[in-house]
Design a protein around this nucleic acid. Structure first.
Length: 225
DNA sequence: TGCCAGGCCGGGT
DNA sequence: ACCCGGCATGGC
Protein backbone atom coordinates (compact mmCIF):
# COMPACT_ATOMS: atom_id res chain seq x y z
CA UNK A 1 0.00 0.00 0.00
CA UNK A 2 1.34 3.41 -0.85
CA UNK A 3 -1.46 5.63 0.45
CA UNK A 4 -1.10 5.77 4.24
CA UNK A 5 -4.72 6.83 4.73
CA UNK A 6 -6.11 3.87 2.85
CA UNK A 7 -3.84 1.67 4.93
CA UNK A 8 -4.91 3.32 8.16
CA UNK A 9 -8.59 3.06 7.32
CA UNK A 10 -8.20 -0.61 6.51
CA UNK A 11 -6.34 -1.22 9.74
CA UNK A 12 -8.95 0.59 11.83
CA UNK A 13 -11.77 -1.40 10.30
CA UNK A 14 -9.97 -4.71 10.53
CA UNK A 15 -9.04 -4.12 14.17
CA UNK A 16 -12.64 -3.28 14.97
CA UNK A 17 -14.48 -5.94 12.99
CA UNK A 18 -11.99 -8.66 12.09
CA UNK A 19 -12.15 -10.73 8.91
CA UNK A 20 -15.56 -10.71 7.22
CA UNK A 21 -15.08 -13.84 5.10
CA UNK A 22 -17.11 -12.58 2.16
CA UNK A 23 -18.99 -13.30 -0.08
CA UNK A 24 -21.82 -14.87 1.96
CA UNK A 25 -22.72 -17.80 -0.29
CA UNK A 26 -20.71 -20.82 -1.24
CA UNK A 27 -21.08 -21.39 -4.98
CA UNK A 28 -20.12 -19.11 -7.82
CA UNK A 29 -23.67 -19.14 -9.14
CA UNK A 30 -25.05 -18.24 -5.73
CA UNK A 31 -22.63 -15.32 -5.51
CA UNK A 32 -23.62 -14.09 -8.95
CA UNK A 33 -27.32 -14.35 -8.17
CA UNK A 34 -26.78 -12.60 -4.86
CA UNK A 35 -24.89 -9.80 -6.58
CA UNK A 36 -27.91 -9.07 -8.78
CA UNK A 37 -30.50 -9.50 -6.06
CA UNK A 38 -28.75 -7.19 -3.62
CA UNK A 39 -28.98 -4.20 -5.96
CA UNK A 40 -30.29 -1.39 -3.76
CA UNK A 41 -31.64 -4.04 -1.42
CA UNK A 42 -31.02 -5.17 2.14
CA UNK A 43 -29.11 -8.45 2.31
CA UNK A 44 -31.63 -10.07 4.66
CA UNK A 45 -34.21 -9.83 1.90
CA UNK A 46 -31.77 -11.35 -0.57
CA UNK A 47 -31.23 -14.32 1.73
CA UNK A 48 -34.93 -15.12 1.69
CA UNK A 49 -34.97 -15.04 -2.08
CA UNK A 50 -31.88 -17.24 -2.37
CA UNK A 51 -33.35 -19.71 0.10
CA UNK A 52 -36.44 -19.92 -2.10
CA UNK A 53 -34.26 -20.71 -5.11
CA UNK A 54 -32.40 -23.38 -3.14
CA UNK A 55 -35.65 -24.91 -1.89
CA UNK A 56 -36.92 -25.02 -5.47
CA UNK A 57 -33.69 -26.74 -6.45
CA UNK A 58 -32.94 -24.31 -9.27
CA UNK A 59 -29.89 -22.48 -7.97
CA UNK A 60 -27.63 -23.58 -10.80
CA UNK A 61 -27.09 -22.62 -14.43
CA UNK A 62 -29.44 -25.29 -15.76
CA UNK A 63 -32.22 -24.64 -13.29
CA UNK A 64 -32.18 -20.89 -13.74
CA UNK A 65 -32.04 -21.23 -17.51
CA UNK A 66 -35.05 -23.55 -17.55
CA UNK A 67 -37.21 -21.59 -15.11
CA UNK A 68 -39.61 -19.15 -16.79
CA UNK A 69 -39.12 -15.53 -15.76
CA UNK A 70 -42.55 -15.18 -14.09
CA UNK A 71 -41.86 -18.21 -11.88
CA UNK A 72 -38.40 -16.91 -11.10
CA UNK A 73 -39.92 -13.55 -10.19
CA UNK A 74 -42.26 -15.18 -7.72
CA UNK A 75 -39.42 -17.06 -6.03
CA UNK A 76 -37.25 -13.96 -5.65
CA UNK A 77 -40.13 -11.73 -4.56
CA UNK A 78 -38.68 -11.01 -1.09
CA UNK A 79 -35.65 -9.32 -2.62
CA UNK A 80 -37.80 -6.55 -4.13
CA UNK A 81 -37.88 -5.30 -7.73
CA UNK A 82 -38.64 -8.91 -8.47
CA UNK A 83 -39.87 -8.50 -12.05
CA UNK A 84 -36.86 -6.40 -12.99
CA UNK A 85 -34.43 -8.70 -11.23
CA UNK A 86 -35.93 -11.86 -12.73
CA UNK A 87 -35.26 -10.36 -16.14
CA UNK A 88 -31.72 -9.39 -15.16
CA UNK A 89 -30.96 -12.87 -13.88
CA UNK A 90 -32.34 -14.39 -17.06
CA UNK A 91 -30.21 -12.00 -19.13
CA UNK A 92 -27.07 -13.03 -17.28
CA UNK A 93 -27.74 -16.77 -17.23
CA UNK A 94 -28.85 -16.79 -20.83
CA UNK A 95 -25.74 -14.92 -21.93
CA UNK A 96 -23.41 -17.39 -20.21
CA UNK A 97 -25.26 -20.47 -21.46
CA UNK A 98 -25.55 -19.26 -25.03
CA UNK A 99 -22.09 -17.75 -25.38
CA UNK A 100 -19.99 -20.12 -23.28
CA UNK A 101 -22.08 -23.13 -22.29
CA UNK A 102 -20.84 -23.43 -18.72
CA UNK A 103 -19.34 -21.37 -15.92
CA UNK A 104 -15.84 -22.84 -16.13
CA UNK A 105 -15.56 -21.79 -19.75
CA UNK A 106 -16.96 -18.35 -19.03
CA UNK A 107 -14.66 -17.80 -16.08
CA UNK A 108 -11.62 -18.91 -18.06
CA UNK A 109 -11.66 -15.56 -19.87
CA UNK A 110 -9.09 -13.02 -18.80
CA UNK A 111 -10.31 -10.28 -16.49
CA UNK A 112 -10.59 -7.60 -19.17
CA UNK A 113 -12.75 -9.74 -21.45
CA UNK A 114 -14.79 -11.08 -18.56
CA UNK A 115 -15.56 -7.58 -17.36
CA UNK A 116 -16.46 -6.38 -20.83
CA UNK A 117 -18.84 -9.26 -21.36
CA UNK A 118 -20.45 -9.04 -17.93
CA UNK A 119 -21.12 -5.33 -18.16
CA UNK A 120 -22.63 -5.75 -21.62
CA UNK A 121 -25.50 -7.71 -20.04
CA UNK A 122 -28.58 -5.56 -19.40
CA UNK A 123 -28.96 -5.22 -15.67
CA UNK A 124 -25.30 -5.76 -14.83
CA UNK A 125 -23.76 -2.39 -13.94
CA UNK A 126 -20.29 -1.56 -12.61
CA UNK A 127 -20.84 -2.69 -9.03
CA UNK A 128 -22.66 -5.91 -9.82
CA UNK A 129 -20.06 -6.68 -12.48
CA UNK A 130 -17.11 -6.06 -10.18
CA UNK A 131 -18.73 -8.00 -7.33
CA UNK A 132 -18.95 -11.00 -9.61
CA UNK A 133 -15.36 -10.53 -10.78
CA UNK A 134 -14.00 -10.25 -7.26
CA UNK A 135 -16.18 -12.63 -5.29
CA UNK A 136 -17.17 -15.26 -7.85
CA UNK A 137 -14.21 -15.18 -10.24
CA UNK A 138 -11.52 -14.31 -7.66
CA UNK A 139 -10.12 -11.45 -9.73
CA UNK A 140 -8.29 -8.52 -8.09
CA UNK A 141 -11.01 -5.96 -8.83
CA UNK A 142 -12.04 -3.38 -6.26
CA UNK A 143 -15.80 -3.07 -5.72
CA UNK A 144 -17.30 0.37 -5.12
CA UNK A 145 -20.70 0.91 -3.55
CA UNK A 146 -22.79 3.59 -1.88
CA UNK A 147 -21.06 3.03 1.47
CA UNK A 148 -17.67 3.45 -0.19
CA UNK A 149 -18.75 6.74 -1.71
CA UNK A 150 -19.97 8.03 1.64
CA UNK A 151 -16.83 6.92 3.45
CA UNK A 152 -14.39 8.32 0.88
CA UNK A 153 -16.12 11.69 0.51
CA UNK A 154 -16.61 11.96 4.26
CA UNK A 155 -12.88 11.50 4.69
CA UNK A 156 -12.13 13.86 1.82
CA UNK A 157 -10.29 11.21 -0.14
CA UNK A 158 -12.46 11.97 -3.19
CA UNK A 159 -14.74 14.75 -4.35
CA UNK A 160 -18.40 14.39 -3.52
CA UNK A 161 -19.27 14.34 -7.22
CA UNK A 162 -16.69 11.72 -8.19
CA UNK A 163 -18.02 8.65 -9.95
CA UNK A 164 -17.50 4.92 -9.77
CA UNK A 165 -14.28 4.67 -11.71
CA UNK A 166 -12.60 7.58 -9.99
CA UNK A 167 -13.21 5.93 -6.65
CA UNK A 168 -12.05 2.59 -7.96
CA UNK A 169 -8.86 4.19 -9.26
CA UNK A 170 -8.09 5.54 -5.79
CA UNK A 171 -7.93 1.99 -4.46
CA UNK A 172 -6.38 0.19 -7.41
CA UNK A 173 -3.84 2.96 -7.91
CA UNK A 174 -2.69 2.84 -4.31
CA UNK A 175 -2.99 -0.80 -3.29
CA UNK A 176 -1.36 -3.98 -4.46
CA UNK A 177 -3.65 -5.88 -6.80
CA UNK A 178 -4.38 -8.50 -4.15
CA UNK A 179 -7.79 -10.09 -4.47
CA UNK A 180 -7.83 -11.14 -0.81
CA UNK A 181 -7.10 -7.58 0.29
CA UNK A 182 -9.75 -6.17 -2.09
CA UNK A 183 -12.21 -8.74 -0.86
CA UNK A 184 -11.70 -7.94 2.79
CA UNK A 185 -11.46 -4.19 2.28
CA UNK A 186 -14.80 -3.89 0.53
CA UNK A 187 -16.49 -6.26 2.96
CA UNK A 188 -15.20 -4.19 5.86
CA UNK A 189 -16.49 -0.97 4.32
CA UNK A 190 -19.96 -2.50 4.09
CA UNK A 191 -19.69 -3.87 7.62
CA UNK A 192 -18.69 -0.45 8.88
CA UNK A 193 -21.35 1.28 6.82
CA UNK A 194 -24.19 -0.78 8.23
CA UNK A 195 -23.39 0.41 11.73
CA UNK A 196 -21.95 3.86 11.24
CA UNK A 197 -22.46 5.21 7.74
CA UNK A 198 -26.12 4.80 6.86
CA UNK A 199 -27.72 7.52 4.77
CA UNK A 200 -29.94 8.60 7.65
CA UNK A 201 -28.85 8.48 11.25
CA UNK A 202 -25.13 8.03 10.66
CA UNK A 203 -23.14 7.49 13.83
CA UNK A 204 -20.05 9.49 12.93
CA UNK A 205 -19.28 10.21 16.59
CA UNK A 206 -18.86 6.53 17.35
CA UNK A 207 -17.34 5.54 14.02
CA UNK A 208 -14.04 3.65 14.34
CA UNK A 209 -12.68 5.78 11.49
CA UNK A 210 -12.87 8.98 13.51
CA UNK A 211 -9.19 8.58 14.32
CA UNK A 212 -8.41 9.00 10.64
CA UNK A 213 -10.49 12.18 10.41
CA UNK A 214 -8.88 13.66 13.47
CA UNK A 215 -5.38 12.84 12.32
CA UNK A 216 -5.96 14.85 9.15
CA UNK A 217 -7.82 17.63 10.87
CA UNK A 218 -11.11 16.95 9.13
CA UNK A 219 -14.09 18.18 11.11
CA UNK A 220 -17.29 16.23 11.52
CA UNK A 221 -19.87 17.70 9.19
CA UNK A 222 -23.00 15.68 9.48
CA UNK A 223 -24.98 17.93 7.16
CA UNK A 224 -23.63 16.06 4.19
CA UNK A 225 -24.48 12.69 5.71
C1' DT B 1 -44.98 4.76 10.22
C1' DG B 2 -42.32 6.26 6.82
C1' DC B 3 -37.92 5.57 5.14
C1' DC B 4 -34.15 3.04 3.61
C1' DA B 5 -31.27 -0.97 1.78
C1' DG B 6 -24.24 -3.79 -0.80
C1' DG B 7 -28.12 -0.32 -8.34
C1' DC B 8 -29.41 -0.01 -12.91
C1' DC B 9 -32.01 1.38 -16.94
C1' DG B 10 -34.29 4.48 -20.13
C1' DG B 11 -35.95 8.83 -21.45
C1' DG B 12 -35.44 13.60 -21.21
C1' DT B 13 -32.46 17.80 -20.99
C1' DA C 1 -22.72 13.96 -20.18
C1' DC C 2 -25.77 14.34 -16.30
C1' DC C 3 -30.47 14.05 -13.98
C1' DC C 4 -34.59 11.78 -12.67
C1' DG C 5 -38.45 8.52 -12.12
C1' DG C 6 -39.36 3.80 -11.80
C1' DC C 7 -38.70 -0.59 -9.89
C1' DA C 8 -40.75 -3.30 -4.49
C1' DT C 9 -40.12 -6.12 -0.30
C1' DG C 10 -39.17 -6.44 4.68
C1' DG C 11 -37.21 -4.38 8.88
C1' DC C 12 -36.50 -0.85 12.24
Amino acid sequence: MSNPRLEEIYRLMFDRFGPQRWWPGDSRIEIMVGAVLTQNTNWSNVEKAINNLKAAGILDLEGLEQTPAPMLAELIRPSGYYNIKAGRLKNLIHYIVRQHGDLDTFFSLDTTDLREELISVKGIGPETCDSILLYAADRPVFVIDAYTHRMLSRHQLIWEEDGYYEMQELFTGNLNADRRLFNEYHALIVRLGKDFCRKKKPACEKCPLRADLEEYGIELNREKF
